[in-house]
Design a protein around this nucleic acid. Structure first.
Lengths: 215, 215
DNA sequence: GCTTGTTTTGAGATATATCTCATTTTTGAG
DNA sequence: CTCAAAAATGAGATATATCTCAAAACAAGC
């Protein structure tokens, strides 16, 4: 029962001290187990078994499950926001940035189905983590408002609505078909006050200009 | 530690046989405990203690927690949809129906904060229950589309997006201020393809025409 | 108030998780 | 290679939940 696809934290820690490598193995296993059984239902021993260690080892690193979840979610947030921001510097059109970021996020979820669900679970259970992820989103929203494309107030409910739309997509279609991605992007833009026509057109353009290759 | 506010199922079963009354006491206690600790975290004994019975009594009625949740959520769904539909017969304008139903749902959550969270938890954990609740919503959506006010396809993702917006409101502001209610109604209408201006105007009208008294 | 069927009770058997720590194993610097 | 420090181990002590069932309490018809 070793990890199959991702090796995110293990990869980041090869060459480093043993302590770092073990911690990373715990983090990677936590992603797999949290994603498959859900956070509440997973037992410490599920994670250590998956990581092929003794259960006592866990307690050399964390006090409890929550501490581990924080760590995992924070690490995933860094990785995911990093990937999304990649090559977005050049884009200075608010709605395009929002649509592209949303689409990229969901496409990451397609490649690495476990990442997004675990990160979101972390964001909802350990709300302090939200600020880190959400700062980018807020900047893009402000840009879109200043440019006159969005018609909305930025408040905490709006942010949660957007996160909820993303979670709904993940829950309903973990495979993350292009349809689901497109419908979710359009939903976000509508929520922000764009008309259906403009939203559809923009999403289509974002798909062909920025996402045609990166499958 | 007896129930304070609601007595939904107890009230429905006064006069009936003992068996019914005990079952109702379990259901009412389940609402309180699920709402305060969350479904996963509640233990059977939490519910029986709250209901002031021996823990063994639970097993005369249910096999496990999930069975109880189904029962509770189904009962709540009947009560809540009944209240929402009350006096909506006369309204034949799709968007008004959607806005009013959303606002009423959230205002029920204000009076009975436990009901909606438990019902939603049930809908997400026992998806079979969704169809019962969602049929009304679908009818209103179809009406709005036929009348040319909505611009969207009705599919399961859309339904989940709407439910998610409602859950976001509940999570963020359980007190359910008028602001939260209004913002959520507008978000639903935007999602369905109405322009921000129309959505705002419609929600304002629904508030003054249909909701001014029922506080 | 007696009797029979129904419901409740709660102690304890069973199951499952957490957490500790004396011991063993591994690591890596010299 | 050697050895002290670091890390891992896993059996078992502690804690917590589930579920059962013989006995007690109760309800209701006669």
């Amino acid at each position: 029962m070793t990890a199959t696809t991702h090796q995110l934290f293990r990869d980041q820690s090869t060459g480093k001290k043993k302590r770092e490598r073990t911690r990373s193995a715990l983090l990677d296993s936590a992603i797999s187990v949290f994603a498959s059984k859900g956070f509440e239902a997973t037992r410490i021993v599920d994670i250590t078994t998956h990581a092929e260690m003794a259960n006592g080892t866990f307690y050399n690193y964390y006090q409890d499950k929550d501490e581990l979840l924080s760590d995992v979610a924070a690490g995933l947030a860094v990785e995911i926001t990093g990937r999304i921001n990649d090559e977005m510097d050049s884009i200075r059109h608010g709605p395009t940035r929002v649509a592209l970021a949303t689409a990229r996020l969901l496409k990451i979820a397609r490649r690495e189905p476990e990442w997004l669900s675990v990160m979101l679970e972390g964001l909802f259970i350990v709300p302090e983590l939200q600020s880190a992820v959400v700062q980018y989103l807020k900047q893009d929203l402000e840009m879109g408002i200043e440019q006159g494309h969005f018609s909305t107030e930025i408040n905490v409910l709006l942010i949660n609505q957007i996160l909820s739309l993303i979670r709904a997509a993940l829950l309903l279609d973990p495979e993350m078909s292009d349809d689901t991605v497109a419908q979710t992007c359009e939903a976000v833009l509508r929520l922000l006050g764009m008309t259906p026509k403009r939203a559809t057109r923009l999403v289509a353009r974002v798909f062909e200009r920025h996402l045609s290759t990166d499958e």
